[in-house]
């Protein structure tokens, strides 16, 4: 049992990293990874929303499937996630201001983030049960964080580099992302190696 969970977790963090091998959530990846502090704050908010979204959409999906309405998944999921994020923002602002000041700023950016919708849809597609879904979401979130934090470090170094004129800005950032992604390729097969 733990073996299953561990393999889901490691797959989600390392071999099928959301950012660097599935390309989900690339916009915030390029947008807010300039600094280590913002990158980690953003990632914490993503982990939080991913877990919450999975916990809420799992029972809803069971209900949809039971009533032969699985085709409504896409519409229902995106609406639930959008409403949920807004709600969380309001609740945090009112009752837990300390957490709001740490995460709240990133919440609006996450509503239409493909990483959150992506993890929810992948959980359904893979046929995970509730516990497996939660573990997968946690892994996806942690993988997001790992990639963001590593990449923020890379970008801080880039700031002081002498870059050819037309590579400045986004192009060099993308090339740097490519190199970071290569480092994650090294993990290919690690799950089979450990658990196989």
């Amino acid at each position: 049992m733990t073996k299953v969970f561990l393999s889901i977790l490691i797959t989600a963090i390392l071999t099928e990293n959301f950012l660097l091998s599935k390309f989900l959530g690339v916009c915030p990846f390029l947008g807010v990874s300039k600094k280590l502090s913002t990158a980690s704050g953003m990632s914490l908010a993503v982990i939080f929303v991913m877990l919450l979204a999975t916990a809420v959409t799992y029972p809803i999906n069971t209900l949809l499937v039971k009533n032969d309405m699985a085709y409504l998944q896409t519409i229902v999921f995106i609406l639930v996630i959008a409403a949920l994020v807004q709600l969380v923002e309001i609740v945090l602002k009112k009752y837990i201001p300390s957490l709001y000041s740490a995460l709240g700023i990133y919440l609006p950016l996450i509503t239409t983030n493909c990483a959150v919708l992506g993890v929810v849809i992948l959980n359904v597609d893979n046929g995970y049960n509730f516990a497996q879904s939660m573990v997968n979401s946690l892994g996806a979130g942690l993988g997001f964080m790992l990639a963001m934090v590593i990449f923020a470090g890379v970008r801080e170094r880039l700031e002081s580099c002498d870059i050819p004129k037309f590579m400045q800005g986004l192009p060099i950032t993308l090339v740097a992302a490519s190199l970071t992604s290569i480092s994650f390729l090294g993990f290919t097969g690690i799950v089979d190696g450990i658990f196989g």
Partner: peptide, 19 residues
């Protein structure tokens, strides 16, 4: 055709577009 290639080609195309 692996993920790093995607980032790399996109970066290069973007550089050409900027130019």
């Amino acid at each position: 055709i692996l993920p790093p290639g995607g980032f790399f080609v996109f970066g290069m195309l973007m550089a050409v577009a900027n130019k």
